[in-house]
């Protein structure tokens, strides 16, 4: 463990004060094992209290601290600075309105999630104990349930940038997660929602979402399965 000098260039924006976002460079010394979040904390605590960003769990599960570092969407808490060298360029996720500095407005993101009815829809009566679900049936949705809703995928999606009405990879992945759950009876309702120009069909299999996902979920693959399911359903 040793101290190193780094240069962190951060996109700043304070509503009411700044007309538009601008860059600010912080030349600081940090431990070489620091994460991006450690750097932000160091700046916020020791140099400039006005810096704003989201963070909570520090262990890559809450999804608060997704941001763009040197052009890549990452979770600040789990990303060591040595991945990028001594020059850091930190900016908020693309495609969302900035509230302040690195904190963006995620309300539209969560609103889209709600649109796909992210809950089991059941026609059958509830059993006394649990529903029987085989390990193989669970396997179909297992990985998709790891999504932490950090929005790194949607912010990396070129189809999402120009079109704010597109559901985006996270909401579509959630649709997949319920449509392919062996316990669910609501596939038809959800398929009707995602079978839309602003739904699954705006995905052009670009794979950016998959590359950005900090949980390494094969989003594009699941979206492709979803497309096939929708077509099968309408044939």
């Amino acid at each position: 463990m040793a101290m190193i000098d780094i240069s962190a260039k951060i996109l700043r924006y304070q509503p009411g004060k700044d007309e538009k976002p601008h860059w600010q460079v912080f030349d600081i010394a940090v431990e070489d094992e620091s994460t991006i979040l450690d750097v932000l904390n160091e700046i916020h605590w020791q140099h400039d209290g006005t810096l704003a960003y989201r963070r909570s769990c520090r262990s890559s599960i809450c999804g608060s601290c997704a941001m763009k570092v040197n052009g890549r969407n990452v979770l600040a808490c789990e990303t060591p600075i040595h991945r990028f060298g001594r020059k850091l360029k930190i900016e908020p996720l693309s495609g969302f309105d900035i509230i302040k500095d690195l904190a963006v407005d995620l309300d539209p993101f969560f609103a889209k999630l709600k649109r796909i009815k992210p809950y089991l829809l059941l026609d059958k009566p509830l059993p006394d104990k649990e529903f029987v679900q085989s390990p193989a049936q669970l396997e179909a949705i297992g990985e998709s349930t790891l999504c932490i809703l950090c929005a790194a995928c949607s912010a990396a999606c070129p189809s999402s940038w120009p079109n704010s009405e597109y559901l985006g990879p996270a909401a579509l992945l959630k649709a997949y997660r319920f449509i392919f759950d062996s316990r669910d009876d609501g596939a038809d309702q959800r398929i009707e929602i995602v079978n839309d120009k602003n739904g699954v069909w705006r995905c052009h299999t670009i794979f950016n979402c998959m590359e950005a996902c900090p949980k390494k979920i094969k989003i594009t693959e699941y979206l492709s399965r979803l497309k096939v399911k929708v077509v099968e359903n309408s044939l």
Binding site: Y166, L167, A171, D196, N198, G199, W201, V231, S234
Partner: peptide
Amino acid sequence: FKQTSRSGS
């Protein structure tokens, strides 16, 4: 998300 009347399937 605004649902359109058009499917893209």
